[in-house]
């Protein structure tokens, strides 16, 4: 029963992913490892679409991932699975908000969780970057160090990082604009070709 399995998998992600939508990423990679629902490459596309369409990134990703596994009902079931633990937990937390805020044990657990969620997100990012920026296969074939790195992608990444952090005119632009710019560059310079 794929719907039950989808609900269970995303329920688990919703229960353990602390720190917002991107924190669900490592769980999606984990699901990709264990099922044939979607590949790492499809996940990267899902992230791009989820970031550039309206709504919570986590829900966008669960809808997309669920759709890949079992169509529109799959997308709905996966999203419901993802939000169920949060809704239950927050309803309880909201009722005890004041006690909860001052509880030192809970504060202590959060103190450990924040760097953990940052690390999980960083590692998830690192895993996908390695697929696109470093071409071990091509390097092994040609033996040339120039082929080890996807230079076009690396240069685009450096330019985008610079524009989104250090140029006053562009650093507060909406992420959609950077995504659209990267899409145009990808089309103009045949970015998909490089990966082959």
């Amino acid at each position: 029963m794929i719907y039950l399995q989808l609900y269970y998998e995303f329920f688990q992600a919703g229960l353990f992913a602390v720190g917002g939508g991107l924190a669900t990423l490592p769980f999606l990679y984990d699901i990709s490892d264990r099922t044939s629902w979607f590949t790492y490459e499809q996940l990267a596309d899902m992230i791009a679409i989820s970031e550039s369409t309206p709504g919570a990134i986590g829900i966008n990703m669960s809808t997309y991932a669920g759709y890949m596994a079992a169509g529109i009902p799959g997308g709905i079931v996966a999203s419901l699975g993802l939000i169920t633990p949060a809704v239950i937990i927050i309803v309880i937390v909201a009722q005890f908000l004041n006690k909860f805020k001052d509880n030192q044990y809970v504060q202590a657990i959060f103190y450990g969780l924040r760097p953990a969620s940052t690390a999980l997100i960083a590692a998830a990012g690192f895993a996908v970057v390695m697929i696109d920026l470093v071409h071990v296969d091509l390097f092994q074939m040609t033996g040339s160090f120039i082929d080890l790195i996807n230079w076009r992608a690396l240069i685009l990444a450096i330019v985008l990082f610079y524009l989104s952090n250090h140029v006053r005119l562009t650093k507060n632009l909406h992420p959609v604009i950077f995504i659209a710019f990267a899409a145009a560059i990808g089309i103009i310079f045949n970015f998909a070709e490089v990966a082959l």
Partner: peptide, 27 residues
């Protein structure tokens, strides 16, 4: 496919930016 190959690069940069923000708050 070309568009998404480009978009993926921008997503890595956006994730890196998000991680830098989170780093400042959490570490």
């Amino acid at each position: 496919q070309n568009a998404f190959a480009g978009i993926r690069v921008s997503v890595y940069v956006l994730i890196l930016n998000a991680v830098i923000k989170l780093w400042k708050k959490s570490i």
